[in-house]
Nucleic acid binder design. Structure first.
Lengths: 113, 113
DNA sequence: TGAAAGTATGAACGAGCATTCATTCGTGTG
DNA sequence: CACACGAATGAATGCTCGTTCATACTTTCA
């Protein structure tokens, strides 16, 4: 549906593309970052607010926000003493939505190996 | 568009859900697994074929296929001496498509900083 | 049945990385 | 201007995990 790229469906995708996918998906590969992103999907939040939201230490939150920032998934803007973070754009929100959606519908692996 | 789950959009998603997302997305967080999945999206392949496709060692391919199997993303079926792998279902193919699509359209992080 | 092809498995090694602790930087406030 | 608050940074640590090497398992064939 919709985005049926077939350049991507080629026998082997460009190595650069593969690496880019892995790098971006890596952002969603840890509970802490997923939690941060999902929280930011609801509304912009300051670092301090995020710290209380997810129950991590301030330093850990800052470190992970930096990772997400460098991946272009979130942006931070100064507001007085604090810095308010938000998702970079709607693409990120969509990516999150679809990750949630698909994971919810995956058959959760066959327990019988 | 489409799957607008709002249970997922709650202030904080269920911890179990967050972990599930992270675990599944972890499968797409490494170039080797992305390469394998993208190759399998085109058509089913035996282990030996995948080894030649992606240029990894047979052992490495088997190990990564096991990871993907346990996550319910691929399934393997015996065919004589060899084992033919394929994506578990269309959900996985869609997830791959959307990962490729979104990553292609992400603004690639701010080069500054 | 013995050998070879195809694949899986286990141990070991090393790199990547998430977290913590301590510190520094920037910004308001008295 | 000194101080408190909010956030970022750097070093250190422990763990996860991808890869390799060696080996065992399964199936086919002579």
């Amino acid at each position: 549906m919709g985005h049926g790229r077939d350049g991507a469906a080629a026998t082997t995708l460009a190595p650069a593309g593969v690496e880019a996918i892995a790098r971006t998906m890596h952002a969603l590969s840890t509970p802490s970052r997923v939690q941060l992103l999902l929280r930011l999907r609801v509304e912009p939040r300051t670092v301090g607010e995020l710290v209380e939201d997810v129950g991590m230490e301030q330093s850990a939150v800052s470190h992970q926000l930096r990772v997400l920032r460098h991946l272009g998934l979130v942006v931070g803007e100064r507001a007085g003493r604090q810095i308010r973070y938000r998702l970079h754009d709607d693409h990120v929100a969509q990516l999150l939505d679809e990750a949630v959606f698909h994971v919810e519908h995956l058959t959760a692996a066959t327990p019988s190996e």
